[in-house]
Design a protein around this nucleic acid. Sequence first.
RNA 1: GGCGGGGUGGCGAAGAGGUCUAACGCUGCGGUUUGCAAAACCGUCAUUCACGGGUUCGAAUCCCGUCUCCGCCUCCA
Length: 468
Amino acid sequence: MPTIKLFNTWTRKAEAFKSITEGEVGIYTCGPTVYHNAHIGNMRAFIFADVLRRTFDYAGYKVNHVMNITDVGHLTDDGDLGEDKMLVAMRREGLNAWDIAKKYTEVFFEHAAKLNIRKPDHVPCATDHIKEQIDMVQKLEEKGFTYKTSDGVYFDTSKIDDYGYLARLDIDGLQAGERVDMGEKKNLTDFALWKFSPKDAQRDMEWDSPWGVGFPGWHIECSAMSARYLGEHFDIHTGGIDHIPVHHTNEIAQSECAHGKKFVNYWMHVAFLNLKDGAKMSKSSGKFLTVDAFEDEGISPLAYRYLCLTTHYRMGMDFDWDSLKAAATGHRRLCERVQKLADGQSLDSVELSKAALAHKAKIDEALFDDLNTAKALGQVFTMLDADDVSGLEKAKLASLVDSIFCIDILSYAPPKADVPAEVQAMLEARNAARKDRDFAKADQLRDEITALGFVIEDTAQGSVVKRG
RNA sequence: GGCGGGGUGGCGAAGAGGUCUAACGCUGCGGUUUGCAAAACCGUCAUUCACGGGUUCGAAUCCCGUCUCCGCCUCCA
């Protein structure tokens, strides 16, 4: 088994990965909230998690990847104020909470599929695991980590001394910030484990509990479901960097207190994708891009996956259309180049020479060095330029890396343009003119076609029209 | 105020003490090809790594200081 180095937020260092069970790895990924579309920033995080799990597959591990679906509405504010985001969505779309969750869960997986994100082995919904969550809160209550207020059951963070270690939280500094409404909380960092339904209204999503009708707090689902599917102690937990100070900090607190043992060995966090003009990519701001926007522009979602691969996952990434288009060009050329080398032949039986294996070693080294996909991609291009390996070996090597990259190197075909009959007729007229060597007329027709937003490519097999 | 990530060619982005006169991709430029283009292919494009000091035989990489950009700390991946 090769050594895989991963940057662990817990130690703030890259460490050689060692699994709890030899040859196996358990990964938990904080999944999407399904009261709205996942935007491309969210998708960057899921592409990262996908690359992580596929890297372990590639290295020969037996992977158990779990990702939750947060389908319970939580508050827009950590205090008592704020609206339930699910309620906001319901009002926006005139659907009940269950239908909102169902709708956006489906859209999420459609988008993920377009990005070649493999569905994790388990994708549990919070609402299907209410019992596990209640059990866990009860356990915490029995051990004396909780207290009740008029609006819910809270975790008392003053009961543990290393609270906030993951985030290197400076509790006094937080106090100074004073940005969170204390409500009836005893400590600023205390958080809800169970919230009561409002007395005067019925929620679409609410459940009975030993403490009263209500719904789970927003951290408990990950603790309860990770324990259910991966055990109380598992290998890797992933999420966005925004989760470090609050969500993951609280998961650690409640999981370790409930189970009395270490929760997670490696914490991995993806940096944010930002919009270049400074606009924030967030669901609540209402304005954000989804995978659909790429397709509307005639750009393959895989070009976005490629773009994400060209930057290290721990680096902030500014999104702008120019870099996406550059990525689309690079992606397309890479695929066409390799496909030409493969020449439609089966690569299964291709034996790799010593030189080819040396190239593979370099690519793997980058991949196993904290998922340095950018460097690995560079190595792929260097390999393609090398003159010590055959074309089929190159294609084979590229296809092997593609089990992680998943940018369809061997099968990608640019989206076909819908060529209107009018343009098709103009193309034929141009071909006729060229045949007659009436180049003035042919060029004029080409200009007209160009003006309509199409590009003509004259190949040996004839002329084709593509969207410009 | 607290925590964190950056500033490398026109753009994106690797590199984290010597193999760096700095990978790779995009763009540009020159060429091959083409009726001319486009596409493709070949070649080419930073003696320099925000700035100022320092450590070292040696620094883009380490240390100190300065400037500067960005993110999180409030639901967010």
